[in-house]
């Protein structure tokens, strides 16, 4: 619920946590551009929409495995909102990350086409954010 803020550089896994939170902000900025157009708060601009969607897809394709070492959760460092469930047996974090990537691919294909296509891809994209956060994020102030 809190505004995303960069982690202060202290405590265990401070750099990893800061890097992945920065990546989340990068995604949020681009989703914000797309959502503003989808909701009609900003005028549809095919080039801007494509730029945002391609940036989002590029972030989804990054190898971020080194940013998520086991144990780098909220219990280790309260700056993180990551749940220990990410690394637990039976965790489907990989499938949920895959859902985000698929939604980002669909958005990259749709965003520059027209407004209706962008709007059509928005639901799955937002759902993929929520899908992962629902299972793997702890609440914070």
């Amino acid at each position: 619920m809190a505004t995303i803020g960069l982690a202060e550089e202290e405590g265990p896994f401070a750099n990893e946590i800061e890097a992945r939170q920065g990546l989340m902000v990068y995604r949020a900025i681009n989703i914000g551009t797309l959502a503003a157009m989808a909701k009609g708060e900003a005028e549809y601009d095919a080039a801007k929409a494509a730029t945002a969607a391609n940036a989002l897809l590029a972030s989804a394709n990054l190898d971020v495995s080194m940013l998520w070492p086991p144990g780098s959760d909220n219990a280790a460092n309260p700056d993180s909102t990551a749940s220990a469930a990410i690394w637990a047996d039976g965790s489907d974090i990989g499938a949920k990350a895959g859902a985000f990537k698929a939604a980002a691919e669909a958005m990259a294909a749709a965003a520059g086409t027209d407004l209706a296509s962008l709007q059509g891809a928005m639901g799955d994209l937002g759902g993929s954010c929520g899908g992962c956060h629902k299972a793997f994020r702890v609440p914070t102030n």
Partner: peptide, 19 residues
């Protein structure tokens, strides 16, 4: 309605179910 904060962070944990 959407789970998105003004900064386009998104709801997590049990709150995602509430949304």
């Amino acid at each position: 309605k959407s789970g998105f904060t003004p900064d386009f962070d998104s709801a997590g944990g049990h709150m995602a179910l509430v949304v």
